[in-house]
Design a protein around this nucleic acid. Structure first.
Length: 526
RNA sequence: GGGCCGUUAGCUCAGCUGGUAGAGCAACAGACUCUUAAUCUGUGGGUCAAAGGUUCGAUCCCUUUACGGCUCACCA
């Protein structure tokens, strides 16, 4: 008989349970996420998206209906030109306008905002994330939020009190809970000058423009963030939305939005949690924050398989900080993932082991882009793979042929891993780690006659016997050979490495020779 | 000033809806005629920051303290 699987204590499941408990039974639960595409969407922003996806998935797996929405807040002001963007001077001329009206400096998309959005939207399905996108600029500009804005205006004093509770200096007497993008110059350099108590809002702009707009038809009016947020909670019926630590302080935006949501919009604040920032480790040069470069999901996908990326996020509690590494830790991350994977396919037999198994198993399940594979994917030690790739100059098909035992349904993932490994070797691996086989025909290192004889003898030994016996046993023959030629092992290894890869050191020789393969290895040692 | 988070083996951390602590690396010992942070086996190592409280029982819950980090009080 099998041991029963204990109830999951994974944070995504705990949160899902909490949502059902606090929001009560519902036909469906709305999980929301969103950011302002004011620049390249970086991997820190990604934490929010994937956190919501994991909770949404946990809810769905409990049998609930889930609506997973993702808001692009591209009606926010373009406040600052990010350092990593081209055409800085051109972009500067669009400051204070909504980012949806800033052009894409690369000329690919309809706007700067759209370009940033699309860069992410195109990649999210690869990591199993497919939310329903909501484009806030479109909604605002179509006056879909007219009533929400009017409600804010009607509750001007309530909102003022809520906000003032945490401000150092109170809001000015002429403050209004709305901001306006001037219809003449598109900038938010405006002041609201009056409201007619219904749909008419008057403003004046630094550019000299003065007018009264109709909330029901104008694209110009927007709610400030702290009011915009609860208004949209109500609008979408949001049940769950996490936020970064910057929002989750007392007096922070979640705090005031909670109040406004309740008192002004009549919406109970959603279940939430705070997620921490993520750091970047390694990545010589390319990813230094001082250069203004940011690490995006694209950069991470070049080095990590989608399920490994998910593993990083699913395996870490949202409220703790962690680093995404591009240095040697990449290898460790892959090894950890593989271990988690092996664990999954090896069901435990005791209750105690089951408890431990469950924890890892749940992480494994949530790490999968889609369903858990029925049979365990092909496992290959990442270091070994790196070496194989290097001996084959990155030719993945050659590696697949060499291994020979990858089944048809395993090949796609293997290929992806190989691409990541090769990219990592080329771009991030330390110099010591890298090598390429010496070109056949290029000169051998200088050596004495005896040394040369020894190296050639090794070449012959490889051609004759390598692969016909266990690696270890065959290794002994190599040591015998050194003894015969009276050469110190250290010296001999150096010579062989020089002959093979033109370096003094390399991967452990015996297995390395097997990795290179009989033919190539013997050819290089002639 | 307020809030949040952290403080667990030398290091990096896991373990937390309570049942007298785990991993990896490092160290040490043994094996291996060998080398990338990359062989195998084994061993040692922690008053779970401190003090109180709740409990049959606390690393885990509550209170206080110390130290560290982040964040809000401008905008989003």
């Amino acid at each position: 008989m099998s041991i029963e699987r204990p109830k999951s204590t994974h944070w995504a499941d705990i949160t899902a349970d909490k949502i059902v408990r606090e929001r009560g039974p519902k036909e469906h639960y709305t999980c929301a996420s969103g950011i302002t595409p004011s620049g390249t969407v970086h991997i820190g922003n990604f934490r929010e998206i994937i956190s919501v996806e994991l909770v949404a998935r946990a809810l769905a797996q409990k049998g609930e209906n889930v609506r997973f929405i993702y808001s692009w807040d591209e009606y926010d002001v373009f406040r600052k030109v990010p350092k990593n963007m081209p055409k800085q001077e051109l972009l500067e001329t669009y400051l204070r306008k909504p980012i949806t009206l800033v052009p894409d400096v690369l000329g690919q998309e309809e706007s700067y905002a759209r370009k940033n959005e699309k860069d992410l939207e195109d990649l999210l399905p690869l990591v199993g994330i497919e939310p329903e996108y909501i484009y806030q600029a479109k909604r605002y500009r179509a006056s879909l939020y007219a009533q929400g804005i009017r409600t804010a205006l009607e509750n001007r004093d309530v909102i003022r009190r809520e906000l003032d509770a945490h401000r150092t200096s109170p809001l000015a007497d002429n403050w209004w809970p709305a901001s306006v993008f001037c219809t003449a110059c598109d900038r938010d350099t405006t002041r609201v000058t009056g409201w007619d108590g219904e749909w008419g809002l008057s403003y004046e702009c630094d550019c000299g423009n003065k007018e009264t707009v109709d909330l029901k038809s104008t694209p110009a009016v927007k709610l400030p963030w702290r009011i915009d947020w609860p208004m949209r909670w109500k609008e979408e019926g949001v049940d769950f939305e996490p936020a970064g630590k910057d929002h989750h302080s007392e007096g922070g935006s979640f705090d005031t939005a909670k109040l406004t949501g309740k008192e002004v919009y009549g919406h109970e604040p959603p279940v939430t949690f705070q997620y921490d920032f993520i750091r970047i480790k390694g990545g010589a040069g390319k990813i230094s924050s001082s250069s203004g470069e940011v690490v995006s999901l694209k950069d991470v996908l070049e080095v990590y398989q989608p399920e490994v990326i998910r593993y990083l996020f699913a395996g870490t509690r949202p409220n703790s900080e962690f680093a995404i590494s591009f240095d040697l830790d990449v290898l460790k991350v892959y090894e950890d993932y593989d271990k988690c994977e092996r664990n999954y396919y090896q069901k435990p037999e005791t209750e105690k082991a089951m408890k431990k198994w469950e924890k890892q198993a749940r992480i494994y399940e949530l790490s999968q882009v889609r369903d858990v594979p029925e049979t365990m994917p092909y496992q290959i030690q990442i270091r070994h793979l790196c070496n194989l790739l290097q001996t084959n100059s990155g030719d993945i098909d050659a590696v697949i042929d060499f291994l020979g035992d990858i089944s048809e349904d395993q090949i796609e993932k293997f290929r992806n891993r190989a691409e990541c490994a090769w990219f990592w070797v080329k771009n991030y691996a330390p110099e010591d780690f890298r090598f390429s086989l010496r070109e056949a025909g290029s000169p051998l290192p200088e050596m004495s006659d005896n040394e040369q004889a020894a190296v050639q003898a090794l070449g012959k030994l490889i051609a004759d016997t390598m692969g016909t016996m266990p690696e270890k046993e065959w290794g002994n023959l190599v040591y015998d050979l050194m003894a015969e030629h009276n050469i110190e092992s250290g010296d001999f290894f150096t010579l062989v490495y020089k002959s093979l890869i033109g370096k003094e050191k390399g991967p452990r020789l015996i297995s390395f020779l097997h990795t290179i393969g009989k033919e190539k290895a013997s050819a290089l040692l002639k």
